[in-house]
Amino acid sequence: MTDRLALHGVFKSFGGLHVNSDVSFALKAGDRVALIGPNGAGKTTLVNIISGDLRPTAGRVLFEGADVTRLPIAERSRRGLARTFQISRLFASLTAGENVSLAVMQRRGLTRRVLSATADMADVHTECIELLETLGIADLAALPVGQLAYGQQRLLELAIGIALKPKVLLLDEPAAGVPHEETPKILGAIDRLPPDIAVLMIEHDMDLVFRFARRVLVLAGGRLIFEGTPAEASLDEDVRRAYLGSYADARRTA
């Protein structure tokens, strides 16, 4: 079976700063992979390269075997790549329901229509409500995004991602900034993602990583230094050094 997503020798530099060096890995259908690493390891840069926000300095990004390294963001999205952002990005002046329905209509190719009212599309409406119900935020559908609590906004962003029916979903710290008592809701939503999607999640919270991931990639100094199960990662000497090292350094310099 072709990999859903594969990176081959990806390098990224900003001037003299090497943010990613020779990163290669692959995701298959149904994968649940966590990308972890200390601050500044280049995790978000890597996700931006995969989503098309950034072009790599060298290397290739393959989506279902096809080279998408030079494709624009929208084209990758249409092929089945969805992502969430570290800080929620939503359509701020629209309601929660409109945010999701826009994703649904875009996926179904309905956004070229200019004379049929959105409110009349009953099947779009139904799909949105069902999706919001599975995330437990259907009662918020009519509210403008600005009135949602941050945790609810994170769930809504996840809803937009799922509404696109992606083949690969990138989650950039889905629980970041969410009050602790609300993280279980996010976790629950991630647990209930359609099993076939390949999911790559950046996360700092190791509890979340252990619960979610069957495989862990560790990025340090822009390089992949480890790939294996979460249990192996916690025992690995290099991983410990990457994490503890940065903390130990911080303590020494403080």
Binding site: A74, S77, A82, F91, L102, R113, S116, T118
Partner: peptide, 20 residues
């Protein structure tokens, strides 16, 4: 229309619009 809604979405956040 859906087109009109998408325009408002683009105004709010063009990158988000690309990502859908």
């Amino acid at each position: 229309s859906p087109f009109g809604l998408l325009c408002r979405g683009i105004r709010d956040d063009a990158l988000r619009a690309r990502m859908i």
